[in-house]
Simulated assay, not measured.
Amino acid sequence: MNFNFLSPVSEEVLSHNATLSAQALGKKIRIHSKTEGIPELDGVQLAIIGVLEHRNDVNYTGQSFGLETIRTSLYSLFPGNWNTTMADLGDILPGDSVEDTYYALKTTISLLIEKKIIPIILGGSQDLTYANYRAYDTMAPMVNIVNVDSNFDLGDVSIEMKNNSFLGKIILEQPYNLFNYSAIGYQTYFNSQEEIDLMEKLYFEAYRLGEVSNKLNLVEPVMRDAHIVSIDLKSVRASELGDNQKYSPNGFDGKEICAIARYAGISNKVSSFGIYEFKPTKALDTTPMLISQMIWYFIEGVNCRVNDDDFAKEDQHQKFNVLIDDDELIFYKSIKSGRWWIEIPFLPNVNNKLKKHALLPCTHEDYMEASHGKIPERWYKAYKKNSF
Rank of each mutant, 00 (worst) to 15 (best):
G274W: 02
G185Y: 05
K356G: 10
D100P: 09
D42F: 12
S110G: 15
P348K: 09
F252L: 07
A206V: 04
V143W: 12
L284D: 13
A87T: 00
R208A: 15
T69M: 10
Y263L: 01
Y176N: 10
G265N: 07
L6P: 10
K279I: 11
A382H: 07
I31A: 08
Y276T: 06
A87K: 00
Y133L: 06
R237G: 08
I92Q: 01
F179L: 13
D232M: 12
G124L: 14
S239A: 07
G274Y: 02
H32T: 04
T138F: 12
S182F: 09
N164I: 08
R378H: 05
N81T: 05
A18C: 08
F311V: 14
N164C: 10
Y181S: 06
F331V: 09
M142D: 05
A261F: 00
S248M: 10
C258V: 10
S371L: 09
D96A: 13
Q193F: 04
D88L: 06
K385L: 12
K381W: 09
T61Q: 08
S387N: 10
E11L: 02
D326V: 15
K116Q: 15
I49Q: 01
L167I: 15
A135R: 03
E194S: 05
N151V: 07
T286A: 13
I344V: 13
P175M: 14
Y136G: 04
S235H: 07
P361D: 15
K353I: 11
Y136Q: 07
Y186F: 15
L323Y: 13
F346T: 11
Y75F: 14
D96Y: 10
A226T: 09
I299D: 00
T129G: 00
L323M: 15
P348F: 04
S10K: 02
G26V: 06
I48F: 09
Y263N: 06
D326R: 15
I299E: 02
Y60S: 10
N144Y: 07
D96K: 14
T108D: 12
H317C: 04
D96T: 12
A238P: 03
L20Q: 05
N177A: 12
P8F: 01
Y297C: 03
I295P: 00
M368Q: 14
P221K: 07
G265P: 01
S165L: 04
K115G: 11
M86H: 02
E68G: 01
F278W: 13
S213Q: 09
S213C: 14
I291D: 05
G62Y: 07
G43V: 08
Y136H: 08
D310N: 13
L41I: 05
I260F: 14
N4W: 12
S272N: 14
S76E: 09
P376R: 01
W296V: 06
S239M: 06
L198W: 10
P288K: 00
V219N: 09
F273H: 00
T286H: 11
Y297S: 02
I257A: 03
G254K: 08
K385E: 06
Y102K: 03
I342V: 15
L290N: 03
S158E: 10
L329V: 05
P39Q: 02
